[in-house]
Amino acid sequence: MDVFKEYWPILLPLIIAEVALMLAALRHVLKHRNYRFGTRAFWIPVVVFIQIIGPIAYFIFGRGED
C-alpha cells in the first residue's frame, strides 16, 4: 500500500481509465445479442478480468453490427 500512497496522483487516473473502458465494454456486451464470434458467457469474463486488452479486443474483434 505504500506505493499507492506515494503515487496515487498517477495510479488513480490509471485505474479510473481502466474501469471506464471496462464498464463501456460491459454495457455494450449486455445490451447486444449478436457478436461477430463468441457468446455472452465468453465476452463478460474477457471484458471484466483482462484489463485494457479485454475491452479493446471486444470492441475491435467481437462487437457485432447493430
Binding site: V3, Y7, I10, P13, L14, L21, I52, P55, I56, F59
Partner: peptide
C-alpha cells in the same frame, strides 16, 4: 458511435500514464 474514438483516446491516455510510472517504479 463504433467506440473507435473512445478506444484510441483511452488507450493512448493509459499509455501516457504508464510511461513515467514504469520508469519510476522499475528500479524499486
Amino acid at each position: 458511435r463504433t467506440y473507435k474514438l473512445l478506444i484510441m483516446l483511452v488507450v493512448f491516455f493509459i499509455f501516457g500514464i504508464m510511461n513515467p510510472l514504469t520508469a519510476k517504479l522499475t528500479p524499486e
